[in-house]
Every structure is written in C-alpha cells, then in structure tokens.
C-alpha cells in the first residue's frame, strides 16, 4: 500500500518530465534547424531541459533532495558518476555545469530529435572509435573549455558494476583532473526497467577531484585509478544519508 502511494505521488512529476523533454525538443527543433544547430546554444538548451527535469525530481522527492557541491577544478575536467537511473545524464546540470559534453555509446544518438541535438552539441559517440580517437575528440572539447562527462559503468545499474577504463585512460593521457559524483536514491525512484516512478529521497554528492598524476607512470595506472575511484563512490553510497 505504501509503495502504491509513493508511486501515485511521484507519477505526475515524472510523467511530466517525459512530456517536457519531448515537447520542448519538438518545439525548439525548428529554431535550431533554421539557425544551423549552434553547438553552444544546443548545450545551453540541454542544460535548460535538465534544470527543469531536476526541478521535477525535487517535487517528486517531496523536497527530500540534497546536494553536496564543491568547487570544480579550474581546468576542463572529466566528470564521472555511478549510473542507477535514466535521469542520471542530467545530473551535472543540477550542479550548474553548462559547458559540458558527454561520452556515450551509439544508441542515444539514434533517439529522434534528442540524438540530433547531442550530436550537434559535440557529444562523443564511442561506437566504432578507438580510445586514441576518442581522446583526440576529448582534447578538442577541452580546448573549447568544456568538461567531459562519462558514466564508467556504461549502463544503468543499482549495484555499482564494473568500471570501464576509458574515463581513467582519458584523465591520465590528457593529464586532466577527474571529478567523481555519487547519485543516491534515483535508482529507488526509477529503477532500471521500471516505467512507473515512486517517491524516494535523493542525494547528489560531489567528491574531491582525483589527481591523475598519482596514477600516471604506475603499471596499469588506469586500472588502479578506476579501482580507487570506484571504492570512493562505494564508500559514499554506503554512508547513511
């Protein structure tokens, strides 16, 4: 019964986010088409979409949404997070990070309208690309002053799964800081494979940035860095809210 009430409460907010994401994209598309899909404008539009979605999550959590924010490094950085929910891609916008692109597998680029937006905004597609090619693209984004976000698990997972090495390889090869974020509660609100959300407490925690120089030159430095960051994320997940 309690679970049913939690679902009834959260439903209008979460359903509203899907309507918002679809309709805002459809209405904005002609403008971007006419103006030639300006990457910066697209990134700011995605930021705006994300902020509205985060507001809906705030209501869906009945204002039990907490955020621990720290200063970002002054240079463009790699941002990573655990990945329990489909809304995670909008996490970084809640921290006010506008100048951002994500690295993703091919399928989001195939979503009508949204896929075109992220492609033109400069998001990086890993399909059919080697790490060397991806790192070159990341360097280009860094030159533009953009942060680069990646979910090292690669797919949604309630328990923290195997971390792909790409984020850590990029951090070491480009000598850029890596900033881990921890998402708590979104997996309870909308678990992988579920359609109907439920009320849950949400907490977003920004951890201290990790200096890649500690791992550079070590044998299998990227693996060690991945293990270190994963442990830090797990420790934060296990900490009581």
């Amino acid at each position: 019964m309690l679970d049913f009430l939690k679902r009834v409460y959260a439903f209008p907010f979460v359903a509203g986010t899907w309507v918002w994401l679809s309709l805002s994209g459809m209405f904005a598309y002609p403008y971007f088409y006419i103006t030639g899909f300006n990457p910066k404008q697209l990134r700011y539009f995605l930021y705006f979409q994300g902020r509205v979605l985060q507001t809906a999550i705030l209501f869906a959590s009945a204002f039990y949404k907490k955020k621990i924010k720290k200063a970002l490094p002054s240079q463009p950085s790699i941002l990573i997070a655990n990945h329990p929910c489909t809304y995670d891609t909008f996490l970084f916008f809640d921290f006010g990070i506008k100048d951002l692109v994500c690295i993703a597998k091919g399928w989001p680029f195939k979503i009508p309208i949204y896929g075109n937006f992220i492609k033109k905004a400069g998001y990086i597609n890993t399909d059919n690309a080697t790490s060397a090619q991806i790192i070159e693209q990341v360097k280009e984004r860094f030159k533009e002053g953009l942060h680069v976000a990646i979910f090292p698990e690669g797919h949604r997972s309630l328990t923290t799964g195997r971390f792909h090495l790409l984020a850590f390889e990029i951090s070491i090869k480009t000598e850029s800081p890596l900033v881990p974020f921890v998402i708590k509660g979104l997996g309870q609100m909308l678990a992988p494979g579920e359609i109907f959300a439920r009320w849950a407490k949400i907490e977003y925690v920004q951890l201290d940035s990790v200096d890649c120089k500690k791992f550079k030159g070590m044998p299998a430095g990227n693996l060690r860095m991945a293990q270190y960051v994963k442990n830090e994320i797990i420790k934060e997940l296990e900490r009581e809210n």
Partner: peptide
C-alpha cells in the same frame, strides 16, 4: 559493447 572494445585495446 563499444566501451568494452575501447577497454579491450587498453587491456
């Protein structure tokens, strides 16, 4: 998947 393919080369 494609992220694994990137890892495979590194490994």
């Amino acid at each position: 998947d494609s992220l694994d393919a990137v890892d495979m080369v590194i490994v």
